[in-house]
Amino acid sequence: MTSATTESVAPPAPASLRRRNRGDPLYRGVVTALALALPLLLLVLVAELAVNARPAMRRFGWGFLTSSTWDPVAEVYGAAPMIFGTLVSSLLALVIAVPLALGVAIFLTEFAPRWTRKPVAFLVELLAAVPSVVYGLWGIFVLIPFLRTYAVPPLKAALGWTPLFQGVFYGNSMLAGGIILAIMIVPYIAAVSREVILAVPASQREAALGLGATRWEAVWSAVLPYGRPGIIGAVMLGLGRALGETMAVTMVIGNRHDIGLSVLQPGYTMAAAIANEFSEATTDLYLSALFEVGLILFVITVAVNALARLLVWRVARGAAIGSKAL
């Protein structure tokens, strides 16, 4: 048969138009593999923590969370004081940091003269750039002496009758830890709140101003309520930071396995316990107990962070708000 080429039969594609592009699948493969490194790392990290924490979990069960005994000699471990100390120091930090951070965010978005906004925002960002260990150094040699001389005596005079301010103040204490943490998390809360407030539609503000509200009233009654979930998210991101912060806290909190109500007394946090004791842990069970502490810390911070992000996303959907600050 001879093949008479007809109009309906298209000629085969010449070589010049044929597929010869091997680069695309290769490129996609490489960057996908690199991206998969992240979940893989996280998986390995969690698995390692869990596997190594197993012996302590088996031995102490849920009692690990509630027992206050931490006795390496008797090989009895309970993490209640550190969990308590972690939560209290972080909450204390929030109490101090939230008004400051919101002040920064509101001032910079609503009231500050335009030319001051960038420099002030930069200074606040710099607070986040100061290494943790430098905060610790400053806490030991500047903050604690200051507290001892100027801040604690009037505090005790005014509030000494409450259980929160009882006992002798030696320096290293929950209070010192909380203040240092507060200074450290202000930039995170401020940065994210600022972005949240900026993401509030201008119409909200203008509507309030149009009704004759003063600028403050517009902020208070229109902007902040609209951004509330996002601001709560920002605060929780700060909380997540505070919970996991290690060095500065370790250096000023006193590192004592104790549960006390007074913020003037030393305390302990989970991160500090790991930092102090991990390389000294001589027995397998001791090490395993520290792994369990690490696992608890990890689970709490992940939960707080995940919740925080959900809240921030509700205000500024999809935008990668706060990813720069975090």
């Binding site: 298209a10 000629p11 085969p12 594609a13 010449p14 010049s16 138009l17 044929r18 597929r19 010869r20 592009n21």
Partner: peptide, 13 residues
């Protein structure tokens, strides 16, 4: 005369 949407044809080319 070649269908550029034909199976063998590479869009890049």
């Amino acid at each position: 005369g070649v269908d550029i949407y034909g199976g063998e044809v590479d869009a890049v080319q």
